[in-house]
Amino acid sequence: MDINFLVDYINPLILGICLLVGFVLKTAFDKFPNKYIPLCALCMGTIIAILINLQSGINAEVILGGMISGLASTGLYEMLRNLLDKDGKSKEGE
């Protein structure tokens, strides 16, 4: 099954906002559980997509685009973290 068609629904603006807010949640709040960051990104992406498209109309495509963009932000964070962690040692514990 090819799921490359989902890339068409990614909104770079929503992806960027969710990426930065997720990074702030991860770094600023020590007690915030990491397992809830994708859920927060999904909800935030959906809300932002609805707010952006409020006047033009809300449909399932808008909601799907917000959800995919929010979840893509967590994947982008993990990809960047792995690319920047070249020596194999994580700097998060320091």
Rank of each mutant, 00 (worst) to 15 (best):
M1P: 13
D2R: 11
D2N: 08
F5K: 04
F5I: 13
V7Y: 15
D8A: 08
Y9E: 06
L13M: 13
I14Y: 03
G16R: 04
I17Q: 00
C18E: 00
L20D: 05
V21G: 03
F23P: 02
V24C: 14
T27N: 04
A28Q: 15
A28L: 15
F29A: 08
D30M: 04
F32C: 01
F32I: 05
K35E: 07
K35N: 11
Y36W: 14
I37H: 00
P38G: 09
P38I: 05
A41E: 05
M44I: 08
G45Q: 07
A49K: 04
A49Q: 04
A49V: 10
I50Y: 06
N53G: 09
I58R: 14
N59M: 09
A60Y: 11
A60P: 12
E61R: 14
E61F: 11
E61T: 15
V62I: 15
I63N: 02
I63Y: 02
L64S: 03
L64C: 08
S69H: 09
G70S: 12
L71N: 02
T74R: 07
L76A: 12
Y77Q: 07
E78H: 10
M79A: 12
R81Y: 05
R81I: 12
R81D: 08
R81N: 09
L83W: 11
D85S: 12
D85W: 06
D85P: 07
D87G: 01
D87W: 00
D87N: 08
G88A: 11
G93E: 08
E94H: 13
